[in-house]
Simulated scan of single mutants.
Amino acid sequence: MSRQRCAGLFVVIIVAGTLTVRPDDRDAYVEGCRIVVEQARAAAGCLDFAITADPLEPGRIRVFERWGTRAELEAFRGSGPAAEQAAVLLAVDVAEYDAVRTHEGTPLPLPASIGAPASSALLGRGIRDLRDLTQVTERELRSWHGVGPKATSRLRDALAEHDLAFAPTQP
């Protein structure tokens, strides 16, 4: 894919699939997930999160999550369902997907002046639009192989031209 065609795209993480429980356990399982759904929807980077009963199959539960970045998904992710919930699961068929979508509005392409190594490093991490960099700290960006001080400075300047900035560094 050419750099021009990549401009304005970014990766969202989708987690989707099904859980299978005994039909008599389904409603209690879904209700037991209510607090997890509330916590996820309040978490940074969560675009959507649902655990719902399938309307046609009595023992089937649908899982659907959409996250802005893998880092945000991993920051939220716990160790999985509680032991009592895991005990009622008969089958789990859930997978993660990287989905590319376009930003709303005019694309803000990465500046060509950052050079090929930095462009390659950013594209390899799903960074295809300046707005994607607002989810990355400057320190994290500098740690990526291929992104040096010159590229970082040029990206900082390009962000500032659009009243954007790198993500704040966590204390």
Rank of each mutant, 00 (worst) to 15 (best):
L56Y: 06
L56T: 09
L56E: 12
E57A: 12
G59N: 00
G59V: 08
R62C: 10
F64L: 14
F64C: 01
E65W: 04
R66V: 07
T69Y: 10
R70S: 01
E72Y: 13
L73Y: 04
A75G: 08
F76Y: 15
R77Q: 13
R77M: 10
G78Q: 05
G80V: 05
A83W: 06
E84V: 12
A87I: 10
L89M: 10
L89T: 07
L90E: 03
A91H: 10
A91K: 12
V92F: 04
A95V: 15
A95W: 15
A95E: 15
E96A: 14
A99K: 11
R101I: 09
R101E: 14
T102F: 00
H103M: 00
H103T: 09
P107H: 02
L108V: 11
P109I: 06
L110K: 01
L110R: 04
P111Q: 06
A112L: 11
A112H: 07
S113Q: 05
I114A: 13
G115I: 15
G115K: 07
P117N: 11
S119R: 11
S120P: 02
S120K: 08
A121Q: 02
A121L: 10
L123W: 15
G124C: 03
G124S: 05
I127G: 00
R128A: 15
L130W: 11
L130T: 02
R131Q: 02
D132Q: 03
D132I: 01
Q135C: 07
Q135F: 06
V136A: 03
